Deep mutational scan, measured.
Amino acid sequence: IINNLKLIREKKKISQSELAALLEVSRQTINGIEKNKYNPSLQLALKIAYYLNTPLEDIFQW
């Protein structure tokens, strides 16, 4: 999986903590996703895309 979450999140000036709060997950979860240590569920990936107002395929590429 190619993961552009960190790049997109930083472009939008959103911290890991802010995104985690919006998604109701821990900051460690966001960190793990960004470091490719954790693959989000489809539901979480869709929520990330929604809150970042970015197409899912721009954030994650399988």
Rank of each mutant, 00 (worst) to 15 (best):
K35F: 06
I8D: 02
K6E: 10
F60I: 03
A45Y: 04
N31C: 10
I33W: 10
Q28I: 07
P55D: 08
E18D: 11
Q61C: 09
T54V: 11
T29N: 04
E18Q: 12
V25L: 05
A49L: 01
E24Y: 09
T54E: 09
L19K: 00
Y38F: 15
I33Q: 00
K12Q: 13
S41M: 04
N53C: 09
K37I: 11
E34V: 05
I8N: 05
P55I: 03
S15F: 03
F60M: 03
N36I: 04
Q43R: 13
A21K: 14
Y51P: 02
I8K: 03
K13W: 05
K11W: 08
E10F: 06
K12Y: 04
K13R: 13
I30Y: 08
A45W: 11
Y51I: 15
F60Y: 04
L56K: 03
E10W: 06
L56Q: 03
Q28N: 14
Q43V: 10
L56M: 13
L7C: 13
I48P: 00
P55W: 04
K12V: 07
I14T: 04
I33C: 02
W62A: 10
K35R: 13
L44G: 00
L46M: 14
Y38H: 09
Y51M: 13
I30V: 12
Y50K: 11
K11T: 13
R9C: 04
W62D: 09
A20G: 06
I14Y: 08
Q61I: 13
I33A: 01
S17P: 06
A45M: 15
R27M: 13
R27S: 14
L7V: 15
I48M: 07
I48Q: 00
W62T: 13
E57S: 11
I30C: 02
L5Y: 00
N4T: 06
K11G: 11
L42M: 14
E18H: 11
N36G: 15
I2R: 13
T29L: 15
K13Q: 13
K6T: 08
R9N: 02
F60V: 02
T54G: 02
Q28H: 14
I33V: 05
Q28V: 13
E10T: 11
I30G: 00
Q16Y: 04
T29G: 04
K11F: 09
L5K: 00
S15Q: 06
N31H: 10
E34Y: 02
L56E: 04
P55R: 08
K11V: 08
K11L: 11
N3Y: 02
Q28A: 14
I48R: 00
L52N: 00
N3D: 02
G32C: 15
N39A: 14
I2G: 11
D58E: 15
P40R: 01
F60Q: 02
Q16I: 14
V25P: 00
V25W: 02
N39W: 11
S17N: 10
T54W: 05
D58K: 09
L52E: 00
N31R: 14
K12I: 08
